[in-house]
Amino acid sequence: MPLQVAGEILSIKKVGAYQAVTVIAPGIPELTRPGHFLAVQVGGPESSMLLRRAFAIYDVKDRGVYGGTVEFVFSVHGKGTAWLSQRRAGDKLDVVGPLGKPFRLPKSAVNVTLVGGGYGTAPLLPLAAALRERGCRVDIVLGAGGSDRLFGLLDAKRMADSVAVTTDDGSSGTRGRVSDVLPAVLDKSQADVVYACGPMAMLRAVSDIAAARGIPCQVAVEESMACGIGVCMTCVLPVVGEDGLTRMVRSCVEGPVFLGDRVRWDDVGTVPADAVGAPRA
């Protein structure tokens, strides 16, 4: 059950090309699991920007001097994130969370590969910690445009059995995409499960690779969201249900985590003709 909290920024710091914000938001940490997200008000209470911005939750601390804190990572894309980037410690920040369905964890100690693109790595790091606690083998693949956009490399190295890095410009690791190195990582680690978070194109490539090997794969998608709480229907994508039928489902409440082989990647951005309730030609 999500909370709306009039929070206060504890810290905001630059991390490579990104910024990480920690907000004092009592009540939210206790409820948060890896994969949950936050919806953050931007521009203040009189803002002309009405819609919240959604960010995957990175770190939470439910104890401490300040009460609970919750941390997320972002990069400046538009006016909302530009406003956010100018906040300072002590500023108010209204947050709603935790939202969405988190990653489901394996019951036993299996071999797990995590694939993060850009700041999409943020929710995978607490996931890695949770998986380690269960005794899983954890291998991590990180990809980004350049080395300043690789998030969480040090944490990844600290927690994982192996870390593979790719960058588009070759400034770190292998030049190329995560999909170039993922098959070798899966084979070497004998992965039983794959988790991924990052841009849609990456999630699709990871899902395809996992599906080809018959490895179950969970992906956290990033759709454009107006409300984040399930009331507006703007955040839909075509997903195949357990009954085999495709529906336009809300990524904010039924996701953001989906099984990779359930998402109709080819049809994202459209309404497939065989979707439930699709217009008849």
Binding site: M49, L51, S224, A226, C232, M233, C235, M248, G269
Partner: peptide, 24 residues
């Protein structure tokens, strides 16, 4: 049952928003 329209279904505008959900 109705699937509604394709995405993007939403754009933010000054003090407002534009939506085209298509009655999903």
């Amino acid at each position: 049952a109705r699937s509604g329209r394709a995405t993007p279904r939403m754009a933010e505008t000054p003090s407002g928003m534009l939506n085209s959900i298509g009655l999903q």
